[in-house]
């Protein structure tokens, strides 16, 4: 009982914080809070909330039995590899291949 309520309260706070940061940023017409700060703040709040919910709702904690934890950690590893790897690879692919006309207007094709 208690763990759900604690988890809920923490999650609500973290959600509100993340929204508040973005709201300040948007309402001030991007004047308040630099982009990068906002980016890391939102990511950080999300990560903390992730841990909070895993801990309080899903009972994922280091003391859990290895049957639960090992596949969980493996999944985490694979998610990081797949998402991180894909971004790195795709970024690299589009950077190392050049595309023409930097900054020139749209080539609306009069070609055909």
């Amino acid at each position: 009982m208690k763990k759900y309520l604690t988890g809920f309260v923490f999650s609500v706070i973290l959600t509100l914080l993340a929204f508040w940061v973005v709201w300040v940023h948007v309402a001030s017409n991007h004047a308040y809070l630099p982009h990068t700060f906002m980016l890391w703040a939102v990511v950080a709040f999300a990560l903390v909330q992730l841990v909070v919910q895993l801990y309080f709702f899903l009972d994922i904690r280091p003391s859990r039995d290895s049957h639960t934890m090992v596949p969980f950690l493996l999944a985490l590893f694979i998610i990081v590899v797949v998402v991180g790897g894909s971004l790195w690879i795709m970024q690299n692919l589009s950077h190392s291949q050049t595309t023409p006309f930097r900054g020139t207007p749209s080539p609306q094709n009069d070609l055909y």
Partner: peptide, 14 residues
Amino acid sequence: FLVWVHHFFTMGAG
């Protein structure tokens, strides 16, 4: 899980 790019080295990554 760490090797999949070797199927497309020639796609033009750095």
